[in-house]
Simulated scan of single mutants.
Amino acid sequence: MPPARDNQPMSPIVTPQQAHDRQRAGALLVDVREEHERASGMAAGAVACAAADLAETFGDPGREIHVICESGLRSARAAAALLERGYARVFSVDGGTRRWRADGLPMVVPEGDADFFERYSRHLRLPGVGVEGQRRLESARVLLVGAGGLGSPAAFYLAAAGVGLLRIADDDVVDRSNLQRQILHGEARVGQPKVRSAAAALSALNPRVRVEAVEERVTSANVDALVDGMDVVLDGADNFPARYLLNDACVKHGKPLVYGAVHRFEGQLAVFDAGRHRGSQPCYRCLFPEPPPPEAAPNCAEAGVLGVLPGVIGLLQATEVLKLLLGTGETLAGRLLQFDALAARFRETRIPPDPDCAVCAAGREFPGYADYARFCTA
């Protein structure tokens, strides 16, 4: 018999076989586990009910009630609480559903989406996610620009997490030199468009996720259509014209932008949410009003990059996307996180909004898209 807590009465214990026999004689069997736990199977004939609702649901204090959970701990607490509320015939099933199943007693699988509860069971246990949050992820829409070093790990984990739609835009093809870091792709898909390779890999990982493969370079002509309807934009581009374009489009459309960049052994990321928070949050231009000269910021093909570094930054970008979609935690909005892989050190820098920013200043009308290629090489 489990020990009582404080002044709580101790609940009598019955074996699963005893509970089953009494259930057949008219006793009520109540499963107090969470919905995602019951999805894999529950004792036949049991009624699903959250522990907090037991007293309100079963109003007859003289009714014989048997409470079952996964292992017997929660059911003992729930049964003790019912005894304290005046229910006289309450029993906890020893060993819970695990022992019920092991003893060969009848089980049923509740109707519903079993794949959802099994696939996301670890998310469903989290207080910041749960069933409601996971359903929110399933209805979410994310634009990923770039299916390369940053987009690969970000897309993999966003798909695994259950983001409902991933729109991936990239006009490049898989090259053998990509495979050192772009983990969405494999040897067999060298020469294929990256977005098609990405769609194949992500669909194999999680067929519940819909992937829109957009085999195009992001330009001023198509960026509005790409951003339209998205909840979050993830910047996995490796060039400054695309970064400034995405920033300006996200300010215009009021979308949060999750920025990331890598160079040799160093990476950085931030969340720019000025479109929804004019005057209180910065945009990318508040941090970098003008791009550096091309010779000061070569791309990965020119400067090289440690293969695992985009993995670190891409995973952190995916983390920020999930926090934004779930509305939980503190995002990197207004903060630049820099990572030095050789020193294994992170450094954080605050980014204040620029009251004179050409794009996101409070009250300023959107100036229109610039000639970003010329702007970034001037």
Rank of each mutant, 00 (worst) to 15 (best):
D224H: 10
L226A: 03
D231K: 00
V232L: 04
N239K: 08
P241M: 08
Y244F: 15
L245Q: 05
L246C: 05
D248L: 06
D248R: 01
V251W: 05
V251T: 07
H253Q: 15
G254A: 07
K255P: 01
A261F: 04
A261R: 04
E266Q: 15
A270M: 12
F272R: 01
F272K: 01
D273C: 04
A274W: 01
R276Y: 06
R276V: 03
R276K: 12
R276F: 03
H277A: 08
R278P: 13
C283K: 02
Y284T: 03
C286M: 05
C286A: 09
F288Y: 15
F288W: 14
F288D: 12
P292A: 15
E295W: 01
A297T: 13
P298N: 02
N299Q: 09
N299E: 11
C300D: 11
V305E: 03
L309A: 07
L309D: 05
Q317D: 09
A318M: 04
T319Q: 13
E320Q: 15
V321M: 08
L322T: 12
T328Q: 13
T328V: 15
E330G: 13
T331Y: 04
A333I: 01
R335C: 09
L336T: 12
A344W: 13
A344E: 13
R345P: 05
E348F: 03
T349I: 15
I351D: 11
